[in-house]
Each structure stands twice: as C-alpha cells, then as structure tokens.
Design a protein around this nucleic acid. Sequence first.
DNA 1: TAGATTGTTAATCGATTAACAATC
DNA 2: TAGATTGTTAATCGATTAACAATC
Lengths: 225, 225
Amino acid sequence: MPKRDNISMSVIRRLPRYYRFLNQLKKEGVTRISSTELSAKLGLTASQIRQDLNCFGGFGQQGYGYIVEQLAAEIGRILGVEHNYHTVLFGAGNLGRAIAAHMDFEALGFHLIGIFDTSPQKIGTVIHGTEVMDTAIFEEFCQKDKPEMAVLCIPRTAVEATVDRLYPLGVHNYWNFSHYDISMKYPDAIVENVHLNDSLLTLCYQISNFKKPSAGIPAEKSKTE
Amino acid sequence: MPKRDNISMSVIRRLPRYYRFLNQLKKEGVTRISSTELSAKLGLTASQIRQDLNCFGGFGQQGYGYIVEQLAAEIGRILGVEHNYHTVLFGAGNLGRAIAAHMDFEALGFHLIGIFDTSPQKIGTVIHGTEVMDTAIFEEFCQKDKPEMAVLCIPRTAVEATVDRLYPLGVHNYWNFSHYDISMKYPDAIVENVHLNDSLLTLCYQISNFKKPSAGIPAEKSKTE
DNA sequence: TAGATTGTTAATCGATTAACAATC
DNA sequence: TAGATTGTTAATCGATTAACAATC
C-alpha cells in the first residue's frame, strides 16, 4: 500500500502537524473527520490534505471520511515515532539543557541516552534524569550503546570537529542547532537544522515590512492563510 | 530603488542566510564576491541568488560582482536589524531561560526589556541581566515601556489567554514556541513559529525513510543541496 | 438508492533555473 | 576593447488547487 517514494519536503513538513491535530481530536473523543473539516481547522485546502495523505495510501473511505484514531496511527507509523532511535546530546549549555528537559523525545521517535560536554563543572551533573558525561569518553560509550542520532547544541566552531568524530562512529543523523552546514562536508548525513537566528530575523523582516508570513519551516514556521 | 512589494516567503527565508554568510566573509576580509562564488558556498544556484537580490534592488555591478560590505549592509537594512524592537519574553521555564540567555537579540533587531512568569520562585530572579517580573504587573509595565514583540515560551494551554491580554495592549508581533496557532484568532498578528516538535518529527521521518532533507525552514529548516 | 466524500487526474499557479542582452 | 558578471526576461519545473469519476 505505501506508495512513498519521492515525497516532497513540502508534504513531509506538513505530516507532524496532521499528526498533532489528529491526536488532539482523538483526545477530544472525535472518531470521524472529513478532509473538509480538517482543512477548516488547519487552514489548508481539503484538496491538499487528500493529496498529501494519498502519497502514502488510501486511508479514508468514500462518502464517510477518515477514522481519526486509525489515521493518527498511520501517520505515526509513516513518521516512525515507534523507533526510539538512541540519541545523544552534545553541549550542556543553556540551550542543550533546555532541549534535554523540554522535549518529549520518547513521544517523537527518539530515546535520549546520554549528554556530553567538555566542561568539568557540567560533567557529572544530571539533566532531567540523564547524566552529563565527558566528551572524552564518547568512543567508550559507543561500545556499550550505539547512538544513531546526535542533537548538537554546541557552538558553531565546535561542530565540524564533533561531526568528524561522530560520523565514523556511525552517528549519521543530526538535529543541529548551530549554523554550521553539516551537509556540505557530509552529503549523506541526514540533518535537520533549527536555525533560531534565522527565524528571529525572518520575524524582524516581517515586522519591518508590515508583511504577513505564510506557512514555513518547522522549527521555523509561520502562518497566514 | 526598493521594489519590495510581493516578496515570497521563499525569498524572505533565504535572506538571513545571505546576511550571515556575507558578514562571515566581511570578517574574513573578503571585499568582493560574485553570485557564482556565493552560490558555490551556499549550495544554491547563482541565478537564484541574483533573482532574490533583485527583488530589493540592483546591488551589484556588471562585470564585477557585489561589494561584500555594502551588500551585507543592504540586506541588514532590508531585514531591519537596526530597529531594536522592544521585546518581552513570557515563560521563564527551561526553554524561556535558554532563549533569553542564548539569543543575541540586539544583533537581530530586538531589545529584550523584560521577562514575565507567574511562578513566585521565578519572579525576582535575573536571567542574563533581565529581571523576571510577575505577569500580573504587565499592564503597568506597558505604561512605562511599550513592548512591540513578545517571545512566547509558555505552555500551549496558556497561549490563548496570554495573547488575548497582550494584543489589546499593542503587542501584535510574536515569536511563538508553542503549537497554539495564534493566526487563527488574530489574522493580523505577525507570527513566527518555532515548532521544535515538528522539526524533530521531520528528522524522524527522514531517518525512518532513508531520505535526505532539502532546504527548509529557518527555525525551519534543513539543507541538502 | 441518494448523498457524501474520497482518490486521482487535469488545470493553475508560483518558484526555480536557464539564457542572454546590458553594461561595467 | 575584451572579459566578466550583473539584471531581467523566458522556459522549466514542481506544488497547489480544482474538478470529477469512483464508491462507500
């Protein structure tokens, strides 16, 4: 059934929103929804929603609509939320600590198994139940537990050296909060960037030019419709 | 000269990247650059860069290219980095504290003048030089210093009530870290969303489906090229 | 069956790329 | 002047929307 092959990023970036909304509806006890009802709630066209969903299969029923619980489960499976990819976080500064404490990694397909930093003051502390370890022992750590993804909350200048070390150890997936462009040197790495500065500057532009934004980026994004 | 009128979000979201890169080049002492050189460094086409810049005016010189310092200054002006919009931050939790401490608001067109929270333990503390005040005194605070933008690091459930309060006080611009959709109720508000959950789920999809991302969101966002 | 709503194809719209004349 | 590179128009490509036949 899954026809997923050349799904465009535009479609992929809408999936988390669908997933979130459907889970919300499920929680509210809604069992059934049509693409038209969904479109009103999301501010998209019904056509686009049906088009998007049909990239992955026919989840609806003609004349009836979609079963909320079933559709949520399907999208969850498409996103891969059940994988619990073993994850490490580099950089226990303000941002790293906030991300470690704030994100519900478990619900989003990941499992945070370790935090790494170079600062002696931070090593040994515990953030939201996860220990901060010395970056120096990372190779050793990898032997007992193979991480697959790394959250990078380190300064721009430290990213290249860090990725040079992690990539050969099998960590090929990155959630990157710096502005260093990992894909340039490692084109096969899967990288999702969160560029907070760019997001803020985009807002500045919009304010300065009295312009309404339109749907955008994840970490990043806006709405007009 | 400025022809800016119906600039698409695709173009706007690339401006911060141009700005960052040009400032980097300036720091490295590069005085002159062609669209072709820029395109190689950014992983875009030269055509797109010229097309983008010409939305705002002709900043280059035929046969020569662009003067780095001048172009950086022009883009800075377009983005509005000199405005220093008075900004308040709501929510001094993990994320709010990290954002307050981590972001260089001054360099990005904003000036953080106050942090607000409801928790007595947080009120009175100082984060990165800015005082945490009781949300209850916000109206009073507005009288002495009119904030124009609010960073929202509060829970989803608290956003509607907060915006209902801020909007009538003249705060119409939001940098929103929650998943509450402000634009639905306030279509005239300028909102830039940072959806960390969506960003992480997008990464999960990409890992699960062995797919490379492509340019995205700022907060948004990812890169392939 | 009649009504509703999907899945899917076709039409439109917008964004990116290519080409080239203008000009430094 | 010759060479280079922009600004800009035209061509291509992709994403969104509209329409409708299939079908529950």
